[in-house]
Nucleic acid binder design. Structure first.
Lengths: 213, 213
DNA sequence: GCCTTTCGCTACGGGTCGTAGCGTAACTGG
DNA sequence: CCAGTTACGCTACGACCCGTAGCGAAAGGC
């Protein structure tokens, strides 16, 4: 899922020496370790190769640039994100906020996420890669939470002609993810229980007003 | 205000050749131009110096790193941000959202903002510089809008023992700025009139619920 | 065993970094 | 007007990283 290598499944060669899966894992681990120690700007391809115990050329055979490598290395962190049923929409929102905040406290995620997004403003393929590997993974939580709230009756049922996603889902996603990221990285203040509660109250109030009005 | 050089006003030397103010302006202009053409990652100090018509050493005499230079170059863009009285809290919010979005459409702001924030996660002095030059400038709009809404009676008056800023102001700020940035840079979809209206409705609903509940 | 592909390794030209050193220009105080 | 001080443009430099090429060896499929 994470590695976007199409070697095995697609029409790639079935003969010759196969690529080492251990090398992949070692490289991604080394990338995260280097991000923790050095941060984005001082991370070099040669250093990652040395840490992973592979040759620099091996690295370039799989990832064309530092950007793509770091996206793949950080994407696995987002696999941890889940949305256990906490019984109410409020609890679900608060849970996902705190979970996302905990992820952003990890130095490798902190330094890498903003950097690759910055790069993606001038690199459309990279933006697609980020969207597929990271953003869509988060967005699913919003859809899941909304569906669950509708089953509970906390939100009105979906319009019959609406697809699986809607503009409102996009709005909620940008508000939740954006607010948490901004709080954690720009304001650089903790996303603690108090903040999560107040944010959830604000968002729930907005949702209630929207469904009633 | 933008340039944080303490040469003139403070206890800096009053003798010797003064620093060229024209050079400052030329360097910051060249930095923005280079950001537009090259983006953050391909911007080099030598290139900026050549564009500005100054020596590279002159650049290093004033800014220790690319990070600080870019922060100062981009900070002036935020001087444009204003909050004209549009008659209602809803219109004020919608206005500031669209104004901030217009700023983020400029390629030099787009590529630079996320990059310096990413760097600031491992560089506390840089974070302070960003806060002073950029973040505080935005936050003032929130305080001003809140005060104006209270004068209109759209929001309850401030508690007598509260200072000029509160935790709620911080929350609103993170929600507004975070949502707009996330929409524009991560989701990479336009912050058009429709989105601004829907976002404003959501936020206003949350505020109303908070003041009533 | 033969073919294909990956691997580790070395080496390379090209580019950027940040600094040092020099002579010159600009401004100040005596 | 002149000495002192600081900024400036210019050149040169070692250090580092980039991304690639070329090699022989290793690891699989047929």
């Amino acid at each position: 899922m994470v590695a976007v290598m199409c070697s095995r499944t697609s029409s790639r060669s079935r003969t010759g020496r196969p690529r080492s899966a251990e090398a992949d894992a070692a490289i991604l681990d080394a990338t995260r370790a280097a991000l923790v120690e050095l941060g984005w700007s001082k991370l070099t391809m040669g250093d990652v190769a040395t840490r992973a115990g592979v040759a620099k050329t091996t690295l370039y055979r799989r990832w064309a640039s530092k950007n793509e490598l770091v996206v793949d290395a950080v994407a696995v962190l987002f696999d941890e994100l889940e949305l256990p049923d906490r019984g109410s929409l409020a609890a679900d929102i608060e849970g996902v906020v705190r979970q996302f905040a905990a992820l952003l406290e990890r130095p490798e995620a902190k330094t890498a996420l903003m950097a690759v997004v910055a790069e993606s403003t001038r690199d459309e393929p990279l933006r697609q890669r980020i969207r597929a590997s990271i953003v869509e993974r988060q967005k699913r939580l919003v859809l899941q939470g909304r569906r669950r709230a509708q089953e509970r009756g906390e939100l009105p049922p979906p319009a019959p002609d609406s697809g699986p996603s809607s503009g409102t889902d996009d709005l909620i996603f940008d508000v939740v993810a954006g607010a948490v990221v901004h709080r954690a990285l720009v304001s650089a203040e903790p996303v603690d229980a108090d903040w999560a509660q107040r944010f959830t109250a604000l968002l729930l109030g907005g949702l209630a007003a929207a469904t009633q009005g």
